[in-house]
Design a protein around this nucleic acid. Structure first.
Lengths: 225, 225
DNA sequence: TCACAAGTGGACGACACCGTCCACTTGACC
DNA sequence: GGTCAAGTGGACGGTGTCGTCCACTTGTGA
């Protein structure tokens, strides 16, 4: 009410803003090297900052993760807009998928952030997600209308594809060839000509389940070496 | 030398063997619910056993994981044998992929075990893996010779596909529809008729990187809610 | 230049998990 | 039934992370 969350945004003292920036850089680096649940203290040390400063700026690990990858999230949203603007809807669709996968591949830690849970941002970003979802639906319909995207493609299939790719790059963080190969296979199977026989029914997933535009998701936990 | 590892196998006292069994059941349950790095003490408690007993039987978490999912690993190996025996190599290939994915889908925690690292079993299971690898190669060649599997399919693509599916079911543990959908898409894109345009070069992966037959792999870490 | 609110660092208590140790129990074999 | 090695449970010390608290520093606006 009174404090409109000056925890982030501007309105910070100059040195504080500088530190905030350093923390985000350090967070991306540390998350890339040691995974998304690296100790907070490690991030602080790398940023040349005390733990207290880190916690003051980002009270939860989640808020740090979200802020650290906000730029990637925005890129995803922008790419969707560009895809919609493309006169060739299939090319738009293809670029959308390829670009998001490229982001997942390049920014270590982003994939993990991508599937990690952000249950509290649900209300907050509801409209953003709905807009994104509508846009995606439009893109899919157009690409189908042109006869490029198979008719039985369901918007949730994009979520499925992105999450799988995400899992792959998490398992093999440095194997770009594997990632590219999967992307190519999936794109080919999304083409209308590839349709042979019926597919099993689509998942009930929606964008709600995937933070394409700083949204959020569900989930449990994976392994460890 | 002197003690030929009676830690597992028979030769255990009756009560000890009973406990061992209980531990494995408990481990599968706990891994399914809380992920593969749930506290050892939780597994012990669930098995109605002290921690010491657990550690005596399975000195490392890895050995516990491996033992807990040994059955699933064996099933994978058996399915490969069956696939080779199938007069229709494509049907064999298809069943192999579908069955392994089904295992990943059904046994929570198995996918995580599947991608988790088992660096020390490398030497130990070297022959088993090589045999598996050769079998797989044979299966692929046969399916290609028949004109069913696309000519540019590379054995490592199976690893890629399995790891992606693994990631998907880890992210969405209860969404069978999503899993089935992905499997269907991938199988269709592996068909010879689906080939349109060149694929990017295959990954350098081999079965070495995937514990199809109780083998092992590499890796780093994923997220956490 | 000064005063003070904003910002800072690191020590600290709480907590969770690990893996070992040891005194006690129990199954197997005579 | 008696002996004893095999087996057992739980307490315990060690380690690593969390998140807070508070005395100190520093930027800002007058």
């Amino acid at each position: 009410m009174e404090e409109p969350s000056r925890i982030d945004g501007p309105g910070l003292r100059a040195d504080a803003r500088r530190n905030r920036g350093r923390i985000l850089v350090a967070a991306r680096a540390v998350f890339a090297e040691r995974g998304i649940d690296a100790p907070m203290a490690t991030v602080a040390r790398r940023a040349g900052v005390g733990v207290a400063t880190l916690y003051r700026r980002f009270p939860t690990r989640q808020s740090l993760v979200r802020a650290a990858f906000a730029q990637q999230m925005e890129t995803c949203a922008r790419v969707l807009t560009e895809a919609l603007a493309d006169p060739d809807p299939w090319r738009g669709f293809q670029r959308l998928f390829e670009t998001v996968c490229e982001l997942q591949r390049e920014e270590q830690g982003f994939p993990a952030a991508f599937v990690a849970a952000f249950p509290d941002s649900a209300a907050e970003h509801a409209q953003a997600r709905e807009g994104t979802e509508r846009d995606l639906m439009t893109l899919v319909r157009r690409a189908q209308a042109v006869g490029a995207l198979r008719a039985d493609f369901h918007p949730s299939d994009l979520v499925v594809a992105l999450l799988s790719h995400c899992g792959l790059v998490t398992a093999l963080p440095h194997d770009n060839a594997a990632s590219r190969r999967l992307v190519a296979y999936l794109l080919q199977s999304f083409r209308a000509e590839a349709a042979r026989g019926a597919l099993p029914p689509p998942s009930a997933l929606s964008l709600r389940d995937l933070p394409l535009a700083a949204g959020d998701s569900q989930r449990q936990r994976p392994p460890r070496a």
